[in-house]
Design a protein around this nucleic acid. Sequence first.
DNA 1: CTGGGGACGGGGCCC
DNA 2: CGGGCCCCGTCCCCA
Length: 479
Amino acid sequence: MEISSHQFHLLEQLNEQRRQDLFCDCNILVEGKVFKAHRNVLFASSGYFKMLLSQSSKETSQPTTATFQAFSPDTFTVILDFVYSGKLSLTGQNVIEVMSAASYLQMTDVISVCKTFIKSSLDISEKEKDRYFSLSDKDVNSNGVERSCLYGAGWRAESSPPHSHLSPEQGSCMMGGNTWSSFTYYPSSRSTQQQLAKHDQRQDSIKKPRHLGLQQPSDIPHYKSSKLEDRASEPTSHMSPSEEQVQIEAEVESPHVGYQYGQGSDVLPRSLAVSQQEHESPRSSSKSKSSKADEQYANIPSILGVMGGWADDDLPRMRFKCPFCTHVVKRKADLKRHLRCHTGERPYPCEACGKRFSRLDHLSSHFRTIHQACKPICRKCKRHVTELTGQVVQEGTRRYRLCNECLAEAGIDSIRIDLEAEPSLEFPQEGDKDSRWHYGEDNRSDVEIVEDGSTDLVIQQVDDSEDEPEEKEVKPNIR
DNA sequence: CTGGGGACGGGGCCC
DNA sequence: CGGGCCCCGTCCCCA
């Protein structure tokens, strides 16, 4: 017989002990702030602590102290609260840093929840767009409420129904073996006065956010750290700050058309919603004054927005606003693409060298450049090479071309021909996304593979007379 | 210090 | 509308 509430009560007791500093045998120092916790609990929750504690526990029975600089105390509060309660308090402000911290601490479940959270934000923007048009003005939430989302584990019997923005797939997502049967919302009022300072502070929002300064453990999936966020947070080189500001201001000034959607289902008038960019996080049980997280995200809109303008034909002109930076794109797909620079997601691995890319076109470009030697240029002397004047050289998985002179200079002019030795690299064709590319078995007849017997240097003779057709043939994912 | 190569993000376009 | 591709600008690393 199983008492389902046992796990919950056990965790609740542990959490109570933590609050009262009972039996805490581990101190975690995060930027000067000390957190007390139990080694057992940390060990069971985090791959990082598992490694750390399994080493330190052998050495001493004294309380262990771990120090972190990679994330803020507020972020660790969210993580620790999750560890001791199974509930993860995610907001548009903290999701990136929580995910980074979870990545650092090797808490894969938390990472997936963060990803789901971000994904759900994407879904909402579309659903809410439709909903907005069906709402009358009085339905529109006018008090600028932001909602933070609190993910809870399944054993927690929450009475409140799942919020409307949460998709069914989220409702069933698993965490630590517990089905997420419900989600809790803790709506919090947001000061609408802050919107008044919007234009002044917008300039601040253009400034680069603080570097997360993560030092990723090398053996865990790497979730993008500060560099890309910084770059992505910039107003971009394509639109100057002033241009962007003009554009957004123009949209704001149109009283009936501006709208932006929250993580919650309430639709916010745009003029209110934009004020969230500079809010000072009133929500907050776990928020302390001026944490680094605040500094980093204070100027980031907490919600994924769909902004509207009006085209000449009176049709709404959709804009998609990144919830994590000031970037605005025209298409949802572009936002999806852009979001990867925040999430660090790199779904496209190069199977030739293992490097991962956030975009398929970057991958294919990388593949062509590095592994297929598509450029008909001698790598050494930069001269144009043809079938007759040059050859493809392979070093490991890298390929490039050398002219005959440079080949001779390098002393690799007399090379043993071994067609079987090195199959050609091929990018996966369409419909072969899972298998990716591979070392093709079917060497084309116009490619002659020559291998240097002493090293992994391989020379291919390429029929450059068919350079264009050939490049097409090897082009990845050709249509 | 500098230039080149590669990575990466964004925009636009086509299918 | 989404995926894929191409082009461009920027940044970083390395020789």
